[in-house]
Amino acid sequence: MLIEVVNVVILALLAVTALAAVRLNDLFAVTMMFGIYSLLATIMFVVLDAIDVAFTEAAVGVGISTVLMLGTIGLVGRRARKVSHRPILPLIVVIITGAALVYGTLDMPRFTDPTAPVHQHLGPYFLNESPDQIGIPNVVTSILASYRGYDTLGELAVIFTAGIGVLGLLGLRRRKRPGHEGGAR
């Protein structure tokens, strides 16, 4: 019962935070809203039994992402200009997409339903076989590093590629020449 209440409250707070982030034009405040949002999501993950995800989100989502955004704001300035035109078209697109998604949820198994199809095949297999095949108590770790090890390897490839991309864009600094490329300055 407590979990249901916490669940409802945290989700409501998430919604408020996200809507506040939409309305604000100070990028620093928007970033802080994102940090709060990630922190609330972390609490949500603890409530929903995903403690490994909560750890990662707390370190990476709240920590590194926010720091990266703050660093970017430091370089580009913190003022976002107000949108001058009425955002009718984006609103229509968003509402239609949201309505389609809500329609899609009507067929979904109910929240915390143990008979949902997703809990019938791989999940129980991992939970039953992991103690014998891998031998560590944390099933999430054994799936991450062993059953889906290639997935994690692919993840490393993505991070490596992103690192090369960031280095190429910013790190290997060519000296700024006045009036180069496009003469925007």
């Binding site: 929903l48 039994d49 995903a50 490994d52 995800v53 990662t56 989100e57 990476v60 989502g61 590194i64 992402s65 990266l68 955004m69 997703v118 809990h119 791989l122 999940g123 991992f126 939970l127 099933v139 999430v140 799936i143 991450l144 889906r148 997935d151 994690t152 993840e155 993505v158 991070i159 590629t161 992103a162 690192g163 991309g165 960031v166 864009l169």
Partner: peptide
């Protein structure tokens, strides 16, 4: 126990998400 498989997928997704954000 809750289903561990979504947790693993999302662990991967969080880290990939930060990589794309930084890029």
């Amino acid at each position: 126990y809750s289903n561990p498989l979504p947790h693993v997928l999302i662990l991967t997704a969080i880290v990939v998400g930060v990589a794309t954000t930084s890029l």
